[in-house]
């Protein structure tokens, strides 16, 4: 039981990271019907920018850990958002009126460009970050097995929760959110009503990239290591999470992220670490067989 609880906590923390990345996939899919395969690499770049920003701050003499973490997070979000904006601008917008597969191919190309860029600029070796936030809460200590939530895990889950709340409010309550939903439901009509759809699409990429940067930052402080390849693996997982939750559905992305995180940790804990990805993808296949639109996806039935 204690063992299960510990794995459950680990799974939730990992799932939060996947969920934040999955949001970016699902938002972009919702609004322009395209899978942004470069999104995983945007997440990786977010992690690298966080690492570089942290090292710069240390060099500048900022040693108070909470302040440094906060600044790092803001810097990573801003610069990664810029990456997201540029990627949309150079790789997708010119192809907006091209055939449907063109932007997707362009996205795959963009993923390679970003990955190789970081590999060359930063080297292929794993980059470590010393543990910044030690300690944690001990929940159960029955002498033998200790169940604990590390402070990093608390930060990861709380940050994710806070972002989910803010993000949901933006989508549900603000003018920007309404415009985004309008573009998602009928882009032509949104334009007929005066919505600058290109700007809304750009904003979507910017928000998606900023959320991915938060995920990259959390990955960095959670695992303490990062390399140029994490974008591919985490990207595929988060994409799976988005599909599992129902692509296009924002709560679905979060739910899918948590599900993939939990499946992965549980499988690793009880069966075999080597086959955890097989487990995650198998569950995806099973779910899609019985629920083709994912857990929270909606069937395309509309009254005419």
């Amino acid at each position: 039981m204690e063992y299960f609880l510990q794995q459950f906590i680990n799974g939730i923390a990992l799932g939060s990271i996947y969920g934040l990345i999955a949001l970016g996939y699902t938002m972009v899919y919702g609004i322009i019907g395209m899978i942004n395969f470069a999104h995983g690499d945007i997440f990786m770049i977010g992690g690298f920018i966080a690492l570089i920003a942290f090292l710069c701050l240390v060099a500048l003499g900022v040693t108070a850990v909470p302040l440094a973490l906060f600044l790092v997070l803001i810097i990573a979000m801003l610069i990664t958002a810029l990456y997201g904006w540029v990627v949309e601008r150079v790789a997708y917008r010119p192809l907006r009126h091209s055939f449907r597969l063109a932007p997707m191919l362009s996205a795959i190309g963009m993923a390679f460009v970003l990955g190789n860029f970081v590999q060359i600029a930063q080297g292929a070796r794993v980059k470590p970050l010393p543990p910044l936030i030690p300690g944690g809460l001990i929940l159960i200590d029955n002498g033998g097995f200790v169940v604990q939530v590390s402070n990093v895990q608390i930060i990861v889950v709380l940050t994710t929760l806070a972002l989910m709340v803010i993000f949901s409010l933006i989508v549900a309550r603000t003018r920007l959110g309404r415009d985004m939903r309008a573009c998602e439901q009928d882009r032509t009509m949104a334009a007929l009503l005066g919505v600058d759809t290109d700007r809304v699409i750009s904003t979507t990429f910017v928000i998606g990239a900023a959320l991915a940067a938060v995920a990259g930052f959390m990955y960095l402080i959670y695992y303490g290591v990062i390399d140029f390849y994490i974008g591919f693996v985490a990207g595929i997982k988060a994409f799976t999470a988005a599909v599992l939750g129902g692509i296009g559905s924002l709560p679905g992305a979060m739910l899918g992220g948590l599900a993939i995180g939990l499946i992965e940790t549980m499988w690793s804990a009880y069966f075999s670490v080597q086959y955890r990805d097989v487990a995650a993808f198998s569950i995806l296949i099973v779910v899609l067989i019985f629920m083709p639109t994912g857990l929270l996806g909606r069937p395309e039935i509309e009254k005419v």
Binding site: D186, L192, G194, T197, K303
Partner: peptide, 24 residues
């Protein structure tokens, strides 16, 4: 000029097929 800028000249259209936002 761009479609949304035309709309901002205060020309409004109820288009073919109505195009209601179904989930709003």
């Amino acid at each position: 000029i761009a479609t949304h800028d035309i709309a901002r000249r205060r020309i409004a259209q109820s288009p073919e097929g109505r195009r209601i936002f179904p989930r709003m």
